[in-house]
Simulated assay, not measured.
Amino acid sequence: MKIDKVIIQTLQMPLKFAFETSLGKLVEKDFLLIRLYADGVVGYGESVAMPYPIYNEETTGTVLHMLEKFLIPALMGRSIEHPDEVSQLFAFVRGNRMAKAALEGAVWDAYCKQKGISLARELGGTQSEIAVGVSLGIEPTVDKLLEKIDGYVRAGYKKIKVKIKKGWDIEVIRTIREEFGYDLPLMADANSAYSLDDIDHLQQLDPFKLMMIEQPLGHDDIIDHAKLQAQLSTPICLDESILSAEDARKAVELDACRVVNIKIGRVGGISEAKKVHDVCAAAGIPVWCGGMLEAGVGRAHNIAITSLSHFTIAGDTSASNRYWHEDIIAPEVILSRPGMLAVPEGAGIGYELNEKVIAKHVVAERIFE
């Protein structure tokens, strides 16, 4: 498969509601849509980087720079036998995993379209449907949060994730449990809002029988999470700390976590995400797919990776209308039944682009050939 041309479009799309975490608040998502042309097919990729370096060091701007100056030149005109080769071609660039993942995802899509096979099947996916949950940000009031949870419970979502921070944690979780009981699959995501000085405070979450508490300590830490896990009965899930399969191996060996959140962009692409999955499967550590407020292309890649056998916990890849007034793909991602998404069977990601929606939100375009 020879790469002939790449088009990058910058889009700005308003979210249906403000999404707030301990890191800040987003009301609009700017992202890059990638079209990769190879031997008569077009593969689609999406950058999941935020407009500001609040989740990791990357931004939409840095991703565009790395694509233009380093990653696209490394691919242009090359013949690729298999998408797994892309990570090796990009190895000369340190970090910049979201930039790498965006372009690698387009290669995977084009490769599968050439073979006439779905991305999920090519990856070895075994599930025809995947269970999904929702991620809820920090709301203006607890009552507003309870109202939203009630709506998603009624819609059949399989997991409720709530963002927490100091001052919005113990009593919030207590109120949720009092309102919905202990059968509700509930987890808390801290986005690195705590330190080891907060052990006594975090232990107050143990009685609420959460599925997990996600990334309570530093975004780049594994060691202190091992110390904290030893003091908690609640499983720790690592997100930001796991940048590769090697990170996953070390975290498992140190008992720094008992669950891993896999995000394609965070680990540098689909190939590495599958390796993280395999490491965790061998160790018996459950995994799930986290979300980065993806539009339709990124959402489709998440569905494909989640079809792998060891994704045993409902992920964050909810329906398109959860976040967007209209999505950039057709058809949009919809629930196949309450709390479930069907894994597309069509070639590649299984969705086409909705050019009318894209045209409304494109603010820039660059062509490389």
Rank of each mutant, 00 (worst) to 15 (best):
G133C: 08
I223F: 00
K163E: 03
S128Y: 09
Q88F: 13
A226C: 04
H301L: 10
H201M: 14
A110Q: 01
Q88I: 14
V27F: 07
K148N: 08
Q127F: 13
S135E: 09
Q229G: 06
G40L: 10
I328W: 06
E129Q: 10
E28S: 15
K25G: 09
A359Q: 15
S318V: 05
G77K: 08
G181K: 14
I242H: 00
A131D: 12
S233N: 09
T10V: 12
C289I: 10
P344T: 10
V132T: 15
I173F: 08
Y323A: 06
V27P: 09
T317H: 08
K2Y: 08
D197G: 13
G61K: 13
D221G: 00
E68F: 02
P207M: 05
E171W: 12
D39P: 06
E345K: 13
T141K: 08
G116Q: 11
K274F: 03
V93M: 13
H325I: 13
I176M: 11
V63Y: 02
H361E: 04
I72G: 11
L67Q: 06
M187S: 09
E28F: 09
P235Q: 10
L254K: 00
L186V: 09
L33H: 10
M1D: 02
D30S: 15
V42W: 05
S233F: 02
E240P: 07
P344M: 08
Y157H: 11
V297M: 14
L228Q: 01
G315S: 10
I313K: 01
S241H: 00
P51G: 14
L186Y: 09
V48I: 10
S271A: 15
